[in-house]
Design a protein around this nucleic acid. Structure first.
Length: 229
DNA sequence: GCCGTCAATACGTTCG
DNA sequence: CGAACGTATTGACGGC
């Protein structure tokens, strides 16, 4: 049995991991020696390599499993009591799950044998693990969307206030604007704040106001020219 | 395989 | 301090 320090990962498991993987400090690595080979026909054969390292199923770190699956006697098969996996079994399953969230039947069988579990236990463990990962991710997504929604709501509120302020400022604007306002030419939708298209009647009013303004401006420029000369 | 659910267990909190 | 209760985690199952 390799100790934790010298544990060399030889986890192939058909997951693209090959050879020696250096162990980082304080990092657990799966100590499985499962190598799956893909035949030319695409059939997967399992090669259990170096199974000797798998004899330590004692829960070293104060485990609390009531009864290890290995210890289930035939009489216990009717026992419905839920079995607690050892820390080592759980850790190995977790490590493999990180690499691959689904296993094919051959991989499951190999892993089950490696961990001294039943094929069904490995299968169920992965099913549960996938479901709970998905659940957590959904929760994370929900929180993210909730924050996005709050942010957009605040932004919307801010823009509405800004629009109100701009409208308030425009009340005391230039005479031309007042005239235009009186002519009801610049209608702004109260709900969306969008500028509404003026009617034909109002278009005529706009033209009239603009003409008057131009005339006043020309008169003013003309008077200033006379005064300056 | 996924989903919903149940049930066993661990762990935290409250209360007398 | 220990019983009672609530909650979270997780192994297992059946239905689809």
């Amino acid at each position: 049995m390799e100790d934790d320090e010298t544990c060399i990962t030889n986890l192939s498991l058909g997951l693209g991991m090959r050879g020696h993987v250096p162990k980082k400090e304080n990092q657990r690595v799966p100590c499985l020696n499962l190598t799956f080979h893909l035949s030319p026909k695409g059939e997967e054969a399992i090669h259990m390599v170096d199974q000797q390292q798998r004899d330590d199923h004692h829960d070293k770190a104060k485990g609390f499993c009531l009864k290890h699956p290995n210890e289930i006697s035939p009489d216990d098969s009717n026992n419905r009591k839920k079995l607690k996996l050892t820390k080592e079994q759980s850790a190995t399953l977790e490590d493999i799950f990180k690499l691959h969230t689904t296993l094919n039947p051959a991989q499951k069988q190999a892993l089950a044998e490696q961990l001294n579990l039943k094929h069904r236990q490995v299968e169920v463990w992965f099913q549960n693990r996938r479901a709970r990962t998905k659940l957590k991710q959904t929760e994370v997504d929900r929180e993210f969307l909730k924050k996005c929604y709050e942010k957009l709501t605040n932004e919307n509120l801010r823009l509405k206030r800004e629009l109100q302020e701009l409208r308030a400022q425009n009340i005391g604007a230039t005479p031309m604007y007042i005239q235009l306002s009186k002519a009801k030419t610049l209608s702004i939708c109260s709900s969306c704040g969008e500028l509404l298209k003026p009617s034909e009647e109002n278009k005529a009013t706009i033209s009239k106001v603009i003409r008057n303004s131009k005339h006043k401006l020309q008169t003013k420029v003309g008077l200033e020219g006379i005064m300056n000369s």
